[in-house]
Design a protein around this nucleic acid. Sequence first.
DNA 1: ATATATAATGAATATCACTCAGTGACTAAA
DNA 2: TTTAGTCACTGAGTGATATTCATTATATAT
Lengths: 250, 250
Amino acid sequence: MSAQKKPRVAKAVARKSSPAATRRERVQSKEDAIIAAAHKSLTTRGFTKTTMSEIARKAGVAEGTLYLYFNNKNALARAVLAAFYKRLTETAKVGVGKCATTREKLEFLARHHLESIIGERRLLELISSDVRNTEAYEGSDIYKMNREYVAVFDDVMRDGIWCGEIEEGAAQWIKRDIFFGSLEYSMRTLLMKKRSSKKDITAVVTELVKLLMDGAGAQFEPMSNHDLIKAVERVDAAAIRLERLSAVKM
Amino acid sequence: MSAQKKPRVAKAVARKSSPAATRRERVQSKEDAIIAAAHKSLTTRGFTKTTMSEIARKAGVAEGTLYLYFNNKNALARAVLAAFYKRLTETAKVGVGKCATTREKLEFLARHHLESIIGERRLLELISSDVRNTEAYEGSDIYKMNREYVAVFDDVMRDGIWCGEIEEGAAQWIKRDIFFGSLEYSMRTLLMKKRSSKKDITAVVTELVKLLMDGAGAQFEPMSNHDLIKAVERVDAAAIRLERLSAVKM
DNA sequence: ATATATAATGAATATCACTCAGTGACTAAA
DNA sequence: TTTAGTCACTGAGTGATATTCATTATATAT
């Protein structure tokens, strides 16, 4: 037994979590720490450049420990994404609740979505690249989270149709795609501009909602109520003159 | 000089390209072969799962040779993407040229884009994940290719505005984002459906163009000029009758 | 024919995701 | 308190893969 493996000595690291916590609580807080560390790395450096050892270091655990909590790098990324969706859905619901009209709700949702995905743009990588392809997307956590999130939009649209603010048109899922698709693409464009300002975001939001509610086609010069009333008044005045005329002659 | 490196013997591989070609031509055809091989792997297996050795094998060259033509895996992927954009732009221009109205042009462009990105969906990964982040996007080949491609859409819209089929609205880039963003998002949705049929594509295309041109909001029953003129004519006729009446009485 | 430039090669290296044999901490029963 | 058992953790080791570079092969010019 000569070249036996050297037994590793525990470094007696001070517990990060409160020592009095139960085992379950300690495990939970460690999971949170890992997700937080992963979130930070993923959002600042992107999926590919983020290494597991980096996450482990940030979270204050050994590399192997990550794999006790998540099967692999993708699963960890998915957990981060799930947490993001949860926050996103929550704030979206709250915000919509404070709006009165359908237009206000849509504008809030659009702005909220756009600002959020600009802030955490690196997370969207995960959706389009590895995460969606690695496993059966349908039935996954992310899929459910996404469903729950876009349901907020669906509800707004349903209400809008119900109270006549929106015309009941084609399949709902198409409008949903138009809404979220436009915003994600706009994000890319905004990020490419030298200084994407608040004004740009407002422009995108306004135009998108305008399109969803009013359309962008050249209207065929609809007459305004004002014009119509003036025209009617003139006719009215003419009729009165005629009435007077015939009354005098009678 | 005992354990000297064994000199590698060339395998005297039969030339793939015609031996009579010039040096320049031979290099070009090899580059094409590499891009073709990379395209095949990338579209079937995705970026991460595609290995450089796999591409080298498919292209019939050594692994090191790949790096004589492209600096790294990302650069190679970018070249594949550039070729894709080139084809896409070409076919888009040709197709639009065959359409008469703005609506037809937009519907063609939408369908063409959607069908193309569904067919080569794995290439889109590249845009959102590594490619865009690896280097300064602006000024890169991909950026220029993309500009050229979306210019086809811009031209259609400009024509549409010029001949009055489209209303001149907000910034053009916003409408562009709405167009392409909706289609890319729709692609995801379509791919998730069990059997995404031709009919689904048609529905998306129709609805998107309808939205861009006519809008989806509940119109407030605007009075048309035609209706107004008819109304005025009726009033006019009534006035004439009255005039005749008073003339008789005179 | 020889020299020079160009093109190609593949073993070696570095980096990273992931594994596993082993260590320590806590808990419950004796 | 002691002891056995389970849970949580560790980090060196493994295999896969992108990238490099010393070397060899081929084509062209003199």
